[in-house]
C-alpha cells in the first residue's frame, strides 16, 4: 500500500464520493440581516460564509476620499470556532489581511466605482465554518451581498478552486481534506460571462503542461457557480417582488 493517499480512486471517485468535475452542494440566501444595506449567506459543502455590505456612504476618513471613484473597504474575519482547532484571534493575522486584499481586488474589477465619487462601500465577510475553499466562498457571498445591496456591477464575479488528482486528472472545488492530503491548488476568481480572470493564485507546484487544463476546469466551475447564484438572485427578487405584484408579470 502506498504511503501517500490517492486523491482519486480507481473508479474516479474522490474521498467524499464526488466525481472529479463535481462541485460541492451550494446553498445560498440573500437578505439574511436587516441592518446592513445588503447581506448574503452561502454554504459550499461545509464551508459557510456570511457577508454584509454597507454603503455607498460618506468616506469615513477624509484623506482617503477620491474625486472620481468610490473606495471599497473589505474586511475578512474568521470566527474563532470555525476551524477544528480553536483559533486565537478572529482577524488581524497575515492570512486574513491577504484574503481581504484579494477580495478587494476581485470586487474592484466588477463594481462600477465611477458612479459614486467621494464615497465608500464596506464589504465584510465572516467565515462561520471553514472546510476548504474559503476564498471562493467569500467572493461568491460578497457578490450576492452586493447584488442584494443594489450596487451596480458589470457582471457576476465568481471564484472556484481546482486541483490535480493522480498527476493527471483536474479536480474541481477542493475540500479541506483534499487540501491537507496535498496536491496543488489553483484558486481563480473570474468574470464568467466575459471569461476574464480577475485573480489567480497557485499553491505548490505542478508542471506547466497541466496548467491549461486545470485552469479550464476552474473557469468551468466559475460558470457553474454563476448559474447557481443567478438562480438564487432571481428567486430572491421574485420573493421580495411578489408582495408588490410585479414578479408575476414577467413569467
Amino acid at each position: 500500500m502506498s504511503r501517500k493517499k490517492e486523491l482519486l480512486s480507481k473508479v474516479g471517485l474522490r474521498l467524499d464520493g464526488r466525481r472529479a468535475d463535481e462541485l460541492r452542494r451550494i446553498r445560498c440566501k440573500l437578505g439574511v440581516f436587516t441592518q446592513p444595506d445588503g447581506s448574503a449567506y452561502i454554504e459550499q459543502g461545509l464551508t459557510k460564509v456570511l457577508a454584509a455590505v454597507y454603503g455607498p456612504h460618506q468616506v469615513r476618513s477624509k484623506q482617503k476620499a477620491q474625486h472620481d471613484t468610490c473606495i471599497i473597504n473589505t474586511q475578512f474575519s474568521m470566527a474563532v470556532f470555525s476551524t477544528n482547532e480553536r483559533k486565537k484571534r478572529p482577524r488581524g493575522d497575515r492570512k486574513s489581511t491577504e484574503l481581504s486584499m484579494h477580495l478587494q481586488q476581485a470586487l474592484l474589477a466588477v463594481i462600477k466605482t465611477e458612479l459614486y465619487p467621494w464615497s465608500q462601500i464596506d464589504v465584510y465577510v465572516e467565515v462561520l465554518h471553514a472546510d476548504g475553499g474559503i476564498y471562493p466562498a467569500c467572493v461568491n457571498a460578497a457578490t450576492l451581498a452586493i447584488i442584494d445591496a443594489g450596487i451596480p456591477i458589470k457582471e457576476y464575479v465568481c471564484a472556484c478552486t481546482a486541483s490535480l488528482g493522480n498527476n493527471d486528472v483536474p479536480m474541481l472545488d477542493v475540500s479541506h481534506q483534499e487540501e491537507v492530503i496535498g496536491g496543488p491548488t489553483l484558486t481563480v476568481a473570474a468574470l464568467p460571462m466575459s471569461g476574464k480572470i480577475v485573480l489567480m493564485e497557485m499553491s505548490q507546484r505542478f508542471h506547466l503542461d497541466h496548467l491549461p487544463k486545470v485552469l479550464d476546469k476552474a473557469l468551468e466551475g466559475c460558470k457553474d457557480i454563476k448559474a447557481i447564484l443567478d438562480e438564487a438572485v432571481k428567486k430572491h427578487i421574485q420573493d421580495i417582488g411578489s408582495s408588490t405584484g410585479w414578479a408575476n408579470t414577467t413569467s
Partner: peptide, 15 residues
C-alpha cells in the same frame, strides 16, 4: 468567555 463583535453587525466594529 470570548466575545467577538463582527463587523457584519455595524461598520463601527471594524478592525
Amino acid at each position: 468567555f470570548f466575545v467577538d463583535c463582527s463587523a457584519n453587525a455595524t461598520p463601527d466594529f471594524e478592525g
